[in-house]
Amino acid sequence: MGSIFSLQQILNGLQLGSIYALIALGYTLVYGIVRLINFAHGDFFMIGAYAAYGSFYMFNALVAGRSGTLAFLVLLAAMIGGASIAYLTNKFAYKPLRYKPKLSSLITAIGVSMFIEYFFSALPAIGPSYRSFPDILVRKEIRLGNAVISNLVIIDLAVAAILMVGLTLLVRKTTLGKAMRAVSQDKDAARLMGIDIEKVISFTFMVGGAFAGAAGLLAGMTYPRIFPYMGILPGLKAFIAAVLGGIGNIPGAMLGAYIMGIAETFASAYNSLIGEGIAFAILILVLLIRPRGLLAEKIADKI
């Protein structure tokens, strides 16, 4: 493809960035509302991929042929899968520790993450090994100069864009979104407004989980191989993206994720090992130069 900075690479970077963005938003939403780094979040992404995988075969038996409807149902299943695991994790692991020292939750988060990974590896229906992800849509490609644009690129970018716009509207415009911001800013005041803050927290976890689930589907379609530990690295990189953008800040998570996706793609084109390591280089740079992230000038606005 010639230059590292070709149109092709930019598209690949945006595609990867879209997936990171959907994951990073979950980190940032949850951090915004309960000040917790949810280390199990990458595993919600993995569950989304498996929910998509399972539902594809289930629906495929019912609906003959691959169609947009089928893809939409699979997306829904992935989001429901991600939202469900997020709901359960919050309810059974984090909620009981809400008013305990933060360190307990942090250690629990790591425990939950390992539990989900090992539990899924041990499930006979899933198992520890790789599975190849089916082609949910018929692949199409168009050529644009030197670049080959597949319909997957468009779908990844579009799904991410639609979900991000939806989230922004939810948080900015709806009453529930106002409640989310209120709970993130002052829990006591929110309670005095009559807001059931645990419900709002639970809802926030579910939105984050649903987004990670959607990312699981997109990742499965784009890099068609899934396994129970597939959430670890993308989870870590998306977390770094959220820190880069300013953890707790929604536009920051999006920005950080696209920077990360593009940086990783360009670096990989140069050398695949550097590509893998670039995320951590970015993390170190952010912590040194701008530890609160690119968009985190307002302390109070954490969601």
Binding site: L192, M193, A300, D301
Partner: peptide, 29 residues
């Protein structure tokens, strides 16, 4: 709250990055 007790807390506890209007709207939750 819905039983009929409202509370102006010590230190006011205004939501800083919500608008005044949004603060008032949430009070009607």
């Amino acid at each position: 709250v819905p039983l009929g007790i409202s509370h102006v807390p010590e230190g006011r506890k205004i939501f800083p990055t919500l608008t005044v209007k949004e603060n008032l709207e949430l009070a009607g939750w």
